[in-house]
Nucleic acid binder design. Structure first.
Lengths: 353, 353
DNA sequence: GTGAAAGCGCTAACAT
DNA sequence: ATGTTAGCGCTTTCAC
């Protein structure tokens, strides 16, 4: 509670009748200090409860030792794991994390990018909102490396570390087809972002290869209506409503692949309420392997996303860029593979391998 | 990509043949500047892409305009919503958020508190790891206000904003008893933290009042074994194992109250696998109202936690302390009420109100 | 081995 | 209305 002023190098110097400079070097562990002096300085620093002032140091050294993380929605379990991984990896390298949340609003994003610039963070990791390039461009032009995470931002010429959603959708779709599905639906959030686009591409590709028709109504878009800010990543309710409508028209060999497990969850209820059984009448698979997926009845087949891997790789890439080693290199895209976890919701008796 | 040096006040001043000071005042919108000068300065600042250096400003003004948030595990959906709420509320007041993750390790906590001190953040919000007071004490003695969030830390003389878990457990337990439960189990994580303790207290109180015996085996502790860091808040698997054992010994009028919905989820499987029906044979209720709760079969009765409210209230309390208005006041505890959401998992035909 | 001086970019006094 | 000086706390020359 004692609101006493923070001790500074000068306080220590004064107490010991040394120069500020010597104290600084002693504490920094530099060589040009006699062992005795160093000890005295250390002792006095302890006594005074000295804590170095990072901002002062950063100001003179010109680096903030801070990374900015711009994220759309920390309620999304995937991002949640990303945050942890990034925080951890950053800390290992001595970097603090400044967290900025955009709620998928470009206005917010502009604001937070600006703030990051003012702080002079050394690098930025970002899950970008879909539209709006200028502020990112400014940030990069100011000399701050930026690594995009999970979502691409066409038009911004920079690195990306994400998940190979094209492949994940392919694998899930292949699996469903192998289990006998012939009437397949892809349920995705109605957002124009790269993960969705990639999954759509993968889904279609597999069906094309198998000569299975893809009608427009096979591509189900769940309208995004963000409610109470960030309280939930996706609402099963939204896909539930879509699902009720869908339940009425699915044919034999029906299967639903959802872009996230919450949508799959909404489907569960819609389908079962309509008297359809999973996987008896409809196969269901999701994305994300959210904690509840394995514990649903039936357990949900889903794609496990390499969140920790993406986080770590993104930090590593950023640090590379910051160190300038590969600073000159052209932007690289790194897509980590996801893993299909097959559970009861997509297994038929007659099915697959 | 141009790694050109960031423009400073001095650059603007030089270009316009003004003093740095005038430029500073012009940009700050202070009165003592002629309108023309202000315009010229603004234009030049724009042209140069000037961005103020927050660290330099903070250094001279002595405030960082930054809040520290120390959290145990960002995967916990409750904390997730807390982060959003805190970030948002902080931003409204012009504060950036520095996020620190402890993974419930005291060692990590000491490290991050130290780092927060070095940054000289203006205030700290913290979900504390249970043991270890000294580093918090140092932080507060250094003049940084600290507000505990969700978990209390006995021995640390500071504010707390949290959830009234005593009351939430009481309400849930009352409800179960009203529905006819007579053999009640409380399933909690085996951690010595205040939320658990409070729920235990509430649970016992109600049973005592109803003259229902509470044997030791009614208090079920789920061993905490953190796996892959932060990938999950709690693992249904853990309570599943406990549940299998429990399923064998529940009597008539059995009910399970879980400290979180993930544990309830594990119970669902354990009980149904054992041939018990929910709510026919066993009533189940959870805590958290996690997104999946309403979509389970049967939908899970649970306690909805006021995460956004806690976050906002915590920031407000912190700002109060920072402004020193009530700085002198003694620590206050604010516990927000939670809301019981009754769903099918706890409703019997013969039951309740 | 130690100290004096300068400066990071900015704002706050105090001139003028 | 504008400029000068000083200083936030620290590190980096460069003397001694």
């Amino acid at each position: 509670m004692t609101p006493r002023r923070r001790a500074t190098l000068r306080d220590i110097a004064a107490a010991l009748d040394l120069s500020v400079n010597t104290v600084s070097r002693a504490l920094a562990g530099k060589d040009a200090v006699s062992p005795e002096t160093r000890e005295r300085v250390r002792a006095e620093a302890d006594r005074l409860g000295y804590v170095p002032n990072t901002m002062a140091r950063s100001l003179v050294q010109g680096n903030a030792m801070t990374l900015g993380l711009v994220i759309t929605n920390p309620s999304n379990p995937f991002y949640t794991r990303l945050i942890s991984a990034i925080e951890e990896r950053g800390r290992v390298h001595g970097y603090s994390l400044m967290l900025m949340v955009t709620e998928d609003s470009v206005d917010n994003e502009k604001r937070v990018v600006d703030e990051l610039m003012r702080w002079g963070v050394d690098g930025v990791l970002a899950v970008p909102v879909q539209h709006g390039i200028d502020h990112w461009d400014r940030l990069r032009k100011s000399g701050t490396p930026v690594v995009l995470v999970n979502r691409d931002l066409p038009g911004l010429d920079t690195d990306l570390v994400g998940v190979d959603y094209y492949d994940s959708a392919r694998r899930a779709t292949e699996h469903l087809v192998a289990e006998g599905a012939r009437d397949l639906y892809l349920v995705e959030e109605d957002l124009d972002i790269s993960p969705v686009a990639e999954r759509v591409r993968g889904f279609r590709a597999v069906l094309d290869e198998h000569g299975i028709a893809v009608r427009d109504d096979h591509m189900v878009k769940v309208p995004t209506r963000r409610r109470e800010a960030s309280s939930q990543p996706w609402d099963p309710e939204d896909s539930y409503e879509i699902g009720r409508e869908l339940a009425g028209r699915v044919g034999p060999g029906a299967a639903v692949l959802a872009g996230n497990d919450y949508f799959a969850l909404g489907m569960y209820r819609a389908l079962t309420e309509h008297g359809l059984s999973i996987p008896g009448d409809v196969l269901v698979a999701g994305h994300g392997d959210h904690p509840f997926a394995a514990y649903l009845a039936p357990p949900l087949t889903t794609v496990r996303l390499p969140a920790a891997g993406v986080g770590a790789a993104a930090v590593d890439r950023l640090l590379e860029r910051m160190s300038g080693e590969s600073g000159a290199g052209s932007p690289r895209q790194t897509l980590l593979p996801a893993e299909l976890v097959v559970r009861a919701s997509s297994r038929t008796a007659n099915g697959g391998a």
